[in-house]
Design a protein around this nucleic acid. Structure first.
Lengths: 345, 345
DNA sequence: TTGAAAGCGTTACCAG
DNA sequence: CTGGTAACGCTTTCAA
């Protein structure tokens, strides 16, 4: 039976005929040994197939080079894009990330926070995940920096990376208005959602007000969340109450596509009979029929930015400030001027 | 300045007036102490807010309770669903997962493999990611188990969790044939893809052959990959060469939706003029207009199964065998009998 | 330029 | 039932 255990720094030292201190030095510090020793050590490392043990390193350095990322769900396009951004930033700095799917459950979240503490992660990212005061307290006790991506925090001092949701919604409505629409409905997420619910509705109201259009509460509908089915259901209600709507702004792309699907089923043509704007800018939007005009959030870049903020904070020991990531109205083919404008009568 | 450092097991021992061995025992073994000591120790742990250090534990136990998962991309629906399945299985066993986005790059993959080795992961999952002989060799040297999910391995001895792609495609085509179609085209992925390309094309051919329908090479088209745009482009070519096709089988949902979008743009109605079947069963399919009939792969369950196989392998030290996950034809509204059957003339 | 040794926070063995 | 202590693999003083 050959020696199955992987070689340690000790083995390398013995084999190379130097001390472990020397091996460690050529591995880490750029100094403290002769060029000749360096080459010799490097060669034996190569020959033995030695690989340093990050766990042992972590124990002594008191850092794991790992961050934890919490998501309420990971099987969606939004999460996936944010995650990809985070991953890119992490990899660029040689850090690794452990992902935690909390399923929006307080229990699972706290469980994960405990796990992350035991794993000695260097920092934590809350992605799309409500950061309650309770979580903040836990994380404070852990003593590691936190940042939030596309998430609402009950503690305003936590650095956040997000879009200006109010303005983004406002811009969408203004575009409708520019196109001549006045009968504008909205499919919202739950208004109790302080990140993606309430602010977008506020933007909708502000744009209407500035244009002198009366705000009619029943022109805003929502169901449970931000999903396709919610969009379908909300549209039914909207259409029943207000069949004369010429434009609908939806708080997510899925919501918008659900609405379009329900509208098509009712025989409405898009955009001829009904204009639609979505939100998020996921790849769903370009795949819709017709391609969906939407307010894009650049999730990839949000994830990347948030991760970098966190890494900076870890490195400097100072809390960073948040960032607003610019949104962008991507114009495709789901919006046109209302065909039955009064002047046509 | 209060004591900022987190308490260690030593601190707990001192505070509780016992030895660290005892504290360790109440933390790990269910035995070896009086009920009274246990309560006392637990109380001091609680009071001091002590949390065990998983890094130190890992060092001595020679395991990290962590697995590495490699994806060629993580911002897609398929990856996200697989990941969610893996996450669920991992969390259920108290393991954590570090994710690696290789971008299909051999360089990044090898870099990650090295990182995972240093992190002392207990096992590795290749998800949707080609497992080359070179990678197998590296992983063998690492001495940890590997399993593959929805991925092709050049080494057939590696446990794999996947769908029977040939049969799945075969079933889809048979369904077309049952509905009366004979002019059946296919939008394939790249045939050099040994997992999702070649086998699905083989299934297509077999079904045709069994039904006595001639296989016409130009009735199969593909572009670069499995994405929306590829579907659009491939459809153009298919339609130019064979405008009389009444049915198209696509090797992914995105491909199918791309084809539908291009077909709709040409004035074709679905399913009246053209029937379409997709592949994957992502949430995209149900959101299409009309809702897409598709061969579902149950990615969530594949991820979960693969992770569990890996954990078993880690625990027992024995390689497990792979699993075929049953596919399922989900019938929605993108397929109907060809309207212009010969008998109607 | 180099080596010896202390120590990071745990676990597990061996005495008592 | 309990305590002392070696060891896990590594980094980092401190001396030489």
């Amino acid at each position: 039976m050959t020696r199955l255990n992987k070689p340690t720094i000790k083995d390398v030292a013995k084999e190379a005929g130097v001390s472990i201190a020397t091996v460690s030095r050529v591995l880490n510090n750029g100094i403290g040994y002769s060029i000749k020793t360096k080459q010799h050590v490097l060669k034996t490392i190569e020959e033995m197939g030695y690989s340093p043990n990050a766990i042992a390193r972590g124990l002594i350095n008191k850092q794991s080079n790992t961050i934890g990322v919490l998501f309420p769900e990971i099987s969606g396009l939004v999460s996936a894009e944010i995650l990809q951004g985070i991953e890119e930033a992490a990899h660029a700095r040689g850090k690794s990330i452990v992902i935690c799917n909390t399923a929006s459950s307080g229990h699972k979240t706290k469980e994960y926070l405990k796990l992350l503490q035991e794993k000695q992660v260097d920092g934590i990212l809350f992605a799309s995940q409500l950061l309650t005061l309770e979580y903040v307290a836990i994380v404070r006790k852990m003593g590691v920096p936190v940042v939030t991506v596309s998430a609402y925090s009950e503690d305003p001092t936590i650095p956040a990376v997000q879009v200006d949701n109010e303005t983004a919604a406002y811009d969408a409505i203004c575009y409708f208005i520019q196109q001549g629409h006045t009968e504008i409905g909205m499919i919202s997420g739950n208004p109790s959602d302080l990140l993606a619910g309430a602010p977008r509705m506020a933007g909708y109201k502000r744009a209407l007000k500035e244009a002198g259009i009366a705000y009619v509460p029943t022109k805003v509908a929502w169901d449970k969340g931000f999903y396709f089915e919610d969009g379908q259901k909300a549209f039914q209600r909207l259409y029943t109450d207000h069949p004369n709507l010429t434009a609908i702004f939806s708080a997510s792309d899925e919501l918008a596509i659900g609405a379009m699907s329900a509208a098509t089923a009712k025989g409405l043509r898009i955009p001829e009979d009904l204009s639609v704007i979505g939100f998020d800018g996921t790849k769903l939007a370009k795949m819709a029929v017709p391609p969906l005009t939407t307010v894009s959030q650049h999730f990839f870049s949000m994830g990347k930015t948030a991760a970098n903020l966190l890494f900076d904070s870890i490195a400097t020991g100072r809390a960073s400030s948040g960032r607003i990531i610019r949104h962008e109205l991507i114009k495709r083919h789901s919006v046109q001027m209302p065909s039955s404008t009064k002047t046509m009568d």
